[in-house]
Design a protein around this nucleic acid. Structure first.
Lengths: 230, 230
DNA sequence: CCAAAAGTGTTAGTCTTACACCCATGA
DNA sequence: TCATGGGTGTAAGACTAACACTTTTGG
């Protein structure tokens, strides 16, 4: 391994999705401190250490750079064009992650992650490297996936109002959905558990009922291949 | 970059699918000549060269090891467990490939690729490294994908009988399909072009009509999101 | 003329979609 | 009491799945 042909380096990048009522579905980005692309926004990530699994690397980098803990992690795609990093040939395995709504709020309040920030998926800034492409791939994947697997719950806390769930889907899919058909389909899945609490109304309107996500039932059905379409 | 912690190496592996009337859907494997796993069967692949794209690496390795040319190539998954190769930490980006039926026959006849061989997907041998896992992932993906995108045609030559197409799907999905519903659905897609040729009957039975795959119409529809389900 | 495989149509049931009205709350 | 958003039911149409008979060939 001589210096004249530097080896390929391996990195991971993590597209982190979060949700809040105010901002809708958002992505976590960090501001770069050094060249290249100094001060540009980028997807969190970094090099994989020898002996470390890819998922370990994602968790480690996210902890270091943002302090966040994810509730869902899935490999997205591996980006390997030789010129995607101007310094050297870096191949990056991209993941997409979902974090609970409570984590979303915590990060927003934290001063620790001063250079990390949420961006709604329809108001993204310019991005470093080929990160715009990675982000597009991630958004496409999540939009596709959420239609046949109920991963949306990973973005909400254990308890949530039906209205929240609906707004999440509207924000994620970027289009209106029929509230009546949506609720029928969701309830038919038998993975929601009704509680006798109600969301305290903000402003006008009838308060919506609070549900719990029944993860046990979800996992049981997942084994047999869940059927789910918005 | 000192010697004490050897860097992670990056490889590609290619799961190549082929089809023939006699054997059904098969996978191309090569027999290893060296340790570890000497003489075991393995998926073709190898290290990525600095400055080379991942897809280039796949094409290069396939040419070197089997002489085959693929008609469809898609990234599958990246396998990165640190201990998947006993020698050192090797992360491998796996692809799946589809080759035309004519290529299938050529390889079978070739003496050049003496250590490459087709194995029907339901008669696979023991495999080196974690290649059994890669193969399972690939078969699952192809089975899923063939149901909502007509990639099956990439396994047939430009002209084929309807019976061939049906047998391909039966072999790939590993279950019977209803010939009448299948043909209706296929024809409704408007990507098949009837010819006035007929397959010469082998043994008994009415000869089946020869169709051409209308790639132009397929690509046109693909842009608008094709609808396809077996 | 018989066996084997190809070709074609119909029907019941399920799922999807579109749509309208009543209910509970805050102002 | 009115404006706002939450909650529920129904009916038309599309799609899926199941199924039987006729046609063409080789033996």
């Amino acid at each position: 391994m001589t210096a004249k042909s530097s080896p390929i380096r391996l990195a991971v990048d993590a597209v982190v999705f979060g949700y809040s009522k105010q901002d809708g579905v958002s992505v976590l980005l960090i501001q770069r401190k050094y060249a290249p692309f100094k001060n540009a926004w980028a997807i969190p990530g970094g090099f994989v250490l020898p002996g470390e699994s890819l998922e370990q690397a994602v968790h480690r980098e996210l902890k270091e750079e943002t302090g966040i803990t994810v509730s869902y992690l899935e490999q997205l795609y591996t980006f390997g064009e030789p010129d995607r990093d101007p310094r050297q040939h870096v191949v990056s395995v991209a993941y997409f992650c979902l974090v609970k709504s409570s984590q979303y709020q915590e990060l927003k309040a934290s001063t620790d992650a001063a250079n990390a920030q949420w961006f709604p998926i329809d108001e993204l800034p310019e991005l470093a490297f080929d990160h715009a492409q990675i982000l597009t791939t991630a958004i496409d994947r999540v939009r596709l996936k959420v239609r046949y697997e109920p991963i949306g719950f990973e973005l909400l806390d254990r308890k949530f109002s039906f209205a929240d769930l609906e707004h999440l889907y509207i924000s994620l899919l970027g289009r209106d959905i029929d509230r009546r058909n949506f609720s029928r389909k969701m309830l038919a899945l038998d993975i929601l558990q009704e509680t006798d609490e109600f969301a305290k109304a903000e402003g006008k309107g009838r308060p919506s009922r609070i549900y719990k996500f029944n993860k046990a039932s979800y996992l049981k059905q997942r084994k047999q291949g869940i059927n789910f379409e918005i």
